[in-house]
Amino acid sequence: MLNTLFLLPVILYFVASALQISALVFKKDVLKKLALIVLAASVAIHTAYIVARGVAAGRVPMSNQFEFANAFAWGVAVLGLFFRLRYRDTMQWMVTLCAPIAFLIISYAAQQPREISELMPALRSSWFVLHIGSAVFSYAGFALAAGIGVRYLVIEKKAEEKTLKQMDRLAYKFIAFGFLMLTVVIISGMIWAEQAWSTFWSWDPKEVWALITWIVYAVYLHNYLRMKWRGGRMAWFAIIAFIAVMFTFVGVNKLMSGLHSYA
């Protein structure tokens, strides 16, 4: 039952992506509307899956690669859908971004072991939800900013100045949001580590890569806010910076061992 519920959003994110891309190719508004409806349905079912898995596990389901990737995909879809509905006139293209990104991430999740396991004692903490939950939204913000960067570069030559400016600003907002959330991740992680391992910081690879990611986006934000960098180079910046996010999430777990190896 849970497996079926998981496979539904995988398929629906793909269908939403296909519909939205078809809408762009064939210039049919009805396909766009359909893509939005499918995306909304997918988010609803995905939410139901996360709740059902949480009930079955007796905890918040965000403790291993599968669960985190699954929540990450959900975060991307929720953020994208929120912006699409909140700014319905100017952000119709948001579905073009969030549906394929959510599909790619949930596809990665689908390749991970899905068994529900008991939380190890160190993870049984009230900090767990804040630490991992903020990571989900932080990564989702960075993923959407990178997606906007890709779109910016694709349409840069033919789009109006106003559209480009709007995308530039939106990428900044997603990164600012992601950065604030990443700061919450690091701070809550430090407080939690002090309670569990008696030390705020252990120079564990995951911790160090979270710091590196934080620095990369701090540089982005300084350049945006103080140096007034805009346009193509900031789009490239958002894309390249996202590599640091993905390495922190996947690379560290696959290539390095440390205190976060279970994640």
């Binding site: 120079w203 690879p205 620095i215 990369v216 701090a218 540089v219 390095m256």
Partner: peptide, 24 residues
């Protein structure tokens, strides 16, 4: 200057990468 601060942050990030690649 902001440039000095940025330079330091980038150096810290680069050295930190080295610290995760070379086991400590």
């Amino acid at each position: 200057s902001m440039r000095f601060g940025m330079l330091l942050l980038v150096l810290i990030a680069l050295l930190s990468i080295l610290g995760t690649v070379i086991p400590q």
